[in-house]
Design a protein around this nucleic acid. Sequence first.
RNA 1: GCUCCCUUCGUCUAGAGGCCUAGGACACGGCCCUCUCAAGGCUGUAACACGAGUUCGAAUCUCGUAGGGAGCGCCA
Length: 460
Amino acid sequence: MPVVTRFAPSPTGSLHLGNVRTALFSYLWARKSGGRFILRIEDTDVERSRRHFRDELLAELAWLNLEWDEGPEVGGPSAPYAQSERGLLYSTLFARLEAQGEAYPCYCTAEELQLSRKLQRMAGSPPRYAGTCRELGAAARREREAHGARPTLRFAVPAGRQVEFVDLVHGAQRLQTDDIGDFIVRREDGSAAFFFCNAVDDALMGVTHVLRGDDHLTNTPRQLLVLDALGLRRPAYGHVGLLVGADGAPLSKRHGSTSVQEFRDRGFLSAGLLNHLFRLGHAGDVDGWLEPAAMPAHFRPEHLGKAPARFDEAQLVHWQREALARMSPAAIGAWLNIADDARFVELIRHNVILPQDAAPWLAVLRGDLAPLGDEERRVVAAAGPAFFAAAVAAIDQVGADLRRLAKLIGERMGRKGAELYMPLRVALTGRTHGPELAPLLELIGPQLARRRLEVHAQDP
RNA sequence: GCUCCCUUCGUCUAGAGGCCUAGGACACGGCCCUCUCAAGGCUGUAACACGAGUUCGAAUCUCGUAGGGAGCGCCA
């Protein structure tokens, strides 16, 4: 059965890792079943919504290849896909709720409500709307409006009932309506509030499966109540465990990078990030690398996790390596921004995880060597000036050919293996590790190589 | 405070009463290969939060405890 899923971000900030993960799961589920994936922009909060966040969001999703079948830019049967443009739709629904007596205008001010909540908290009871405006008569309402009061619209939560639903990941849930206060569905400025428009749009757009963070689990009954009151079809909800930092606390700035953009800017590859996200709070049926195109087939919605998953950059790095290993030299060149030098790319590709790792090797080819560290100095000292004098003589004879060079030096100095190669590596590159030496030497060239060897040929 | 949710190696996870001497992946250690690093091959260390109960038998079921998290907003 085709599954219709959606991703419904609000353009009030950068796309968070936790959000893309649910976007990915939603996308995969739709693709797996041959269904549809919808993108909806939840921009009802005009204060905080920004156009550039929206654009960035779309760009990151595109970068990750999470293509939406309906939504901004591509349109679809349920357009418009930005909530800021769906006001008309909402107002007919508000009217219906009001006519049915399932919603009522509330004239309490934000300050009054805040005070009331504070008082309730102090008294040790849950902070819930007291119901002040629920029983207001028509005359009282007229009077308040005459004084210029602009009401919000509250949903009248029925007393003494239970709301039941089966969560896709947590199983059967049952909540008491008495634990829920009357909540706002329309703000003072006339805009729709989250509990309302989020639920209503899912139903209206034909969404069958909603995947979202655990933090919404206890809010779900509210949305179900709204849907039921309006006679709209309930989607199935699945609440996945949250994505948290290494310390188990909600992912935040102090954990380092948390937005997709940051990882992208640092040079992480989308395929690697996707492979990592695929396994956070989810178990597919393979351990190894998955091409993004193969992911839908291996996605297992019944293996979505309840427990919070910790984001560990070490694992991301692993998938980055895997992604790199599968890239063409041309693609790596472009990624490193040195597309013109194919031999160099091929040489250093296994010593690079992020583009910045290429810089030292570029310097080895073109610039000056960094000062030697302790270990490097020991290697040079152990070889001795005579070794390097022999190396200089050898390079004058055979040029930048490591095999012939090593043979000459080896014969003259009676050395082989690490004793022979390591001093050469250190003198030539300034480090004890790095890519294969022979091609590196070729790229360095005889002149530069000679100068670097000569430095160590003198007595210290 | 009230309500709800969660808990298997350091991390991501497999596990739906006997297949578990708890499996895999990442990370970490060792060995092989090798001038080094990376890759690759082999290999090692490492977990059922705790306590009761049900059962012939429990990581799996029930209850409790502890710890963590979320919600209770004119944010989403």
